Simulated assay, not measured.
Amino acid sequence: MRKPALIVIDVQNGIDEASHWGGNRNNPEAEENIGLLLKAWKKNDLPVIIVQHCSVSPASPFRPGYTGNELKDFVKPYAVGKIFQKSATSAFIGTDLHKTLQDIGIDELVITGFVTNNSVEATARMAGDLGYKNIVVSDATAAFDKIAIDGTHYSSQQVHTLSLSHLKDEYASIRTTDEVLASLIIPI
């Protein structure tokens, strides 16, 4: 029987400080979709992994001791076990996430959270390299506008789409929340 783990990356209050990240966030419904997935995982007694970014940058909204570092309220009830705290982009760097997943027999990950072209992409790439079968949930992740090195402005939707395109097929399957929920063994 499939036992995919839901990975919830950096769903913290500081993500709402949009100007820090580049502004104009896409997927305003990402938190709602993450909430739906969390409820389905709990109902189906599937493993949930909460990842919290603890930045070493004193200007980061994710720095420890700042309110932005706190998990969003809707995630807190699901953070009943260990929270994987990281200071790098990938949830596997500086944590025992890989060992924990191996210990509980997980080989499939459903990845959600922030920011698509940063921690979500880095985690999915490394998970793929470690041999996990990955699904990145396109509408349960989000990105922000980005200014390229040549000064070109890319919208958050363009950044998001390109990041998911980098992952598609080589590192992960890309699915919507509805598609992931429909694929669970026990319907919600």
Rank of each mutant, 00 (worst) to 15 (best):
F62L: 15
K42T: 08
L46N: 00
T116N: 08
T116M: 08
M126A: 05
D73R: 11
P58W: 03
I50D: 05
K43G: 07
P61E: 00
S119I: 00
D107E: 13
P58E: 07
N33A: 05
F74N: 06
Y66N: 11
T116E: 09
Y66E: 14
D139R: 03
F62I: 03
D139K: 08
R63C: 09
V110Y: 01
E70R: 14
D129E: 14
K82G: 04
L130I: 04
K99P: 12
G81T: 12
K72Q: 11
V120H: 04
T95L: 10
E108G: 04
S90Y: 08
Q102P: 03
S55M: 00
G128T: 08
A142R: 05
G113K: 01
Y66G: 05
N118P: 04
N117P: 13
V137Y: 07
G65K: 01
G68E: 09
T95A: 06
I135M: 13
L38R: 00
I135F: 11
H53V: 09
K39A: 13
W41D: 02
F114R: 06
L109C: 11
R125V: 14
T141S: 13
A140I: 12
I111P: 05
Q85Y: 05
I93V: 15
A122V: 06
G105V: 14
Q102S: 06
T116K: 02
T89F: 12
V120M: 07
A127L: 02
S55C: 01
L36R: 15
T100E: 12
D129C: 14
L36G: 01
D107I: 08
V137A: 08
K133E: 13
P64W: 05
S57Y: 00
I50K: 03
R63K: 15
T123S: 15
I49H: 03
I106S: 11
E108Q: 15
G81C: 14
P77V: 07
K39D: 12
K133Q: 13
P58T: 04
A127S: 06
H53I: 07
I50V: 15
G81R: 07
F92K: 00
V136R: 00
P61I: 00
E70N: 09
L37Q: 01
N44W: 11
Y78W: 05
L101T: 03
S138V: 09
T67L: 12
S55A: 04
G68A: 10
V51N: 03
L46E: 00
N117M: 10
P77F: 06
P47D: 09
A142M: 11
P77S: 02
E108I: 10
T67S: 15
L101M: 11
G113Y: 03
D129P: 11
V110S: 07
P47I: 13
V51G: 02
A124S: 07
P61A: 01
Q52I: 04
K86N: 02
